[in-house]
Simulated assay, not measured.
Amino acid sequence: MPQRRSVARAAVTASAAAACLALATPAWASAAVTNPTLRQAGKHVLASNAEFDQGFGNCAGADQQAGQDIWVFIWPGNGVESVDAVKIGWDTDNDKTADTFKTLADGHFTTDNGAKKVWFATPAGWQLESGESTIHGQVPQNLFNLTHTCSGTTQTQSPSPTPSTTGSESPSPSDSGTPTPGQPGGTETPGPSGSVGGGAGGGGSLPITGVAATSIAVTGIALIGGGIALMTLRRRRDRITFTS
Results as ranks from 00 to 15, higher is better:
E81G: 09
N94E: 08
T241L: 06
S174A: 08
F242M: 15
P184T: 04
P36F: 14
G182Y: 05
D84P: 02
F73T: 00
G107M: 11
W126C: 15
W71K: 06
G114F: 15
T111N: 08
A229E: 00
T187V: 06
G152P: 01
A27C: 12
G79S: 15
P190F: 05
T232Y: 12
G125Q: 02
P161S: 07
A24K: 13
A217G: 02
I74W: 14
F52C: 15
N78C: 07
G199C: 14
T134F: 02
V83R: 01
W75K: 02
T243A: 09
T92H: 11
G61F: 10
W119C: 01
A24N: 04
D95S: 11
K87T: 02
A222H: 08
A105P: 01
M1C: 11
G204R: 11
G152S: 06
R239V: 13
T13F: 08
F144E: 00
W119S: 00
L143H: 11
G197H: 05
D53W: 11
S174E: 10
P123T: 02
W90K: 00
R239W: 11
T232W: 14
G194R: 05
E132W: 13
T103C: 09
G204D: 14
F56P: 00
M1K: 04
F109K: 05
K102D: 02
F144P: 00
I221T: 06
G194E: 05
G114V: 03
E51G: 14
S168E: 04
A60L: 10
S48E: 00
S244F: 13
G57D: 13
V139G: 00
P36R: 04
A115D: 02
G167N: 01
R5C: 08
A31S: 03
F120K: 14
K117W: 06
L23A: 07
K96M: 11
P184C: 06
Q141E: 01
S193W: 01
V45F: 12
